[in-house]
């Protein structure tokens, strides 16, 4: 039990996919124009990550070595398409906002990376926990980045404006702000958690 808790918490800080492993940069930068968008993208990735991790750990022993990458990609793509269909049906507004970056979860290196590095060698439940941990870590980083950009750029928190209708520093909602914010957050993360470095 405690082992599984460790798997989950490990993804949050020690193996944080965004700030430590530097994976999945594209959706991290593109979808974090607000905290809500970052959160939705994180949860979407979490969904695919957990399910594909479980499925892959279940079928891994039966997959011949040479075709394991194509098989994993097909499995991941299936879950992504499933997610696309579900989101179109039940959360069409969010689907529209995140747009292209939902299908692009397929090529998010986090998902394939976890399948390859963890799920293919571990049991179904452990893989699910690993998926939850890494997915939550990703969700957390995206929400934080989205929150910072929203506060600086739009002057609001989760859509609640504290500037009374005035504009924030728009650059932070636009492309340059994404890169710069992520850079500075990474510095902060390094300072807080990797003191020995």
């Amino acid at each position: 039990m405690s082992n599984r808790m460790k798997l989950i918490s490990g993804g949050l800080v020690k193996n944080n996919p965004t700030f430590v492993l530097l994976l999945g940069m594209c959706p991290t930068l593109a979808t974090t124009t607000s905290a809500i968008n970052g959160l939705s993208m994180g949860l979407a990735t979490l969904f695919v990550l957990v399910l594909s991790n479980m499925a892959i750990s279940a079928i891994a022993p039966a997959v011949p070595d040479k075709v394991h990458i194509p098989v994993y990609i097909v499995v991941i793509a299936t879950f992504v398409t499933l997610l696309q269909l579900l989101m179109q049906a039940f959360t069409p507004a969010i689907y529209e906002t995140l747009g292209l970056f939902i299908p692009l979860i397929v090529v998010n290196c986090i998902v394939l990376g976890r399948a390859e590095a963890f799920a293919s060698k571990n049991g179904v439940l452990d893989s699910a926990c690993d998926g939850i941990g890494v997915g939550l870590g990703f969700t957390l980083s995206l929400t934080v980045l989205g929150l910072v950009r929203e506060i600086l750029g739009a002057g609001s928190i989760f859509g609640w404006s504290f500037l009374g209708g005035r504009d924030g520093m728009l650059a932070f909602v636009l492309a340059p702000g994404a890169f710069i914010c992520l850079g500075y957050l990474m510095v902060l993360f390094n300072k807080l958690f990797n003191k020995e470095k």
Binding site: V63, P64, V67, H68, V71, K121
Partner: peptide, 19 residues
């Protein structure tokens, strides 16, 4: 762990997974 690959099982697994 991972099975040894030969043409038959590679084709079989890929087809099955895709189907």
């Amino acid at each position: 762990m991972a099975k040894e690959s030969n043409l038959k099982n590679m084709a079989l697994v890929l087809t099955l997974v895709c189907l």
